[in-house]
């Protein structure tokens, strides 16, 4: 098991961290004094309403946008696997799943098979990209990210376009991948129910970081409640409680690594 990742740094040093980052488009402040860090083996979820700057922050972390001020630090030789929010699947582009996967990195047939097996989408290697379902597309994007053997997975809305039953499954899958590879995961999501169930820490963004911490603590934060509404905040607290029990009772066989070992 290559649980240590290859970033080399100690478990307590973050894979990526941003400090006091501000981004401006024109005269508008899109991000204001944002702090965030992702450690190896940790799932950090970025939540926030539309227009809160989530995707902008992701693009800063990926190095696509240079911040107006503030610093972004990445571990040396950090390999990032990225799954963008929206990859248009235009039928004018003849593209099989196999060809799509090898666009990011060359890979042997065996490795492609293994990676698709890992994301549980092994029967679609020769399908045209435009003919697979939304859930399968998210798995294919995840597979393309994994082919790079990433230290850090950055997944922008990985549950978008996925029906509700598969959402749960996909979320388990992401947690399993984290357990197996020990990589850090930065998730962007607006679906709070699923987020709260399996994340290690939540960062709630509203141009600035309005609150952050463990899901339980964030839910009780008055600023979070005022942003998402008190009712939702309360129902989530109940949901999370219920999920904890179910999770303990099920004890997924392929997620053997206890998460506590990774984060402490």
């Amino acid at each position: 098991m290559d649980a240590n990742g290859s970033a080399g740094a100690s478990r307590h040093r973050p894979l990526v961290s941003v400090h006091g980052v501000c981004v401006r488009f024109g005269r508008r402040n899109v991000l204001d004094q944002v702090h965030l860090a992702v450690h190896p083996g940790e799932i950090v979820t970025l939540v926030g309403l539309n227009g809160a700057g989530k995707s902008t922050l992701v693009r800063v972390i990926l190095g696509i946008i240079k911040p107006f001020s503030g610093t972004v630090r990445r571990a040396p030789d950090l390999q990032i696997g990225y799954s963008p929010q929206h990859v248009p699947r235009d039928p004018i582009m003849p593209m099989t799943v196999r060809r799509f996967l090898t666009l990011g990195a060359a890979a042997s047939h065996e490795r492609l098979d293994a990676v698709l097996q890992e994301v549980r989408a092994n029967k679609i290697l020769n399908f045209p990209l435009s003919e697979i379902s939304g859930g399968e597309m998210q798995r294919v994007l995840l597979a393309r990210a994994l082919l790079r053997r990433p230290d850090l997975l950055v997944l922008d809305e990985p549950l978008a376009g996925v029906d509700i039953t598969s959402q749960n499954e996909l979320y388990r899958l992401i947690a399993d991948i984290r357990d197996r590879h020990g990589c850090g995961v930065l998730l962007v999501s607006h679906d709070l129910h699923l987020v709260m169930a399996a994340t290690d820490s939540v960062v709630c963004l509203n141009r600035h970081v309005c609150c952050s911490g463990k899901p339980r603590d964030v839910l009780r934060n008055p600023e979070f409640a005022s942003l998402f509404g008190h009712d939702l905040s309360e129902s989530l607290a109940i949901y999370q409680h219920a999920h904890d029990h179910r999770h303990d009772a099920l004890g997924e066989p392929d997620a053997l690594t206890p998460r506590a070992n990774d984060s402490h």
Binding site: V87, L103, G104, R144, R148
Partner: peptide, 17 residues
């Protein structure tokens, strides 16, 4: 070829890769 194709599919993904 590969760069051009990757760029055509998704610019951000290509940049990260």
């Amino acid at each position: 070829w590969r760069n051009l194709l990757a760029l055509t599919i998704n610019q951000d993904l290509a940049a990260v890769e």
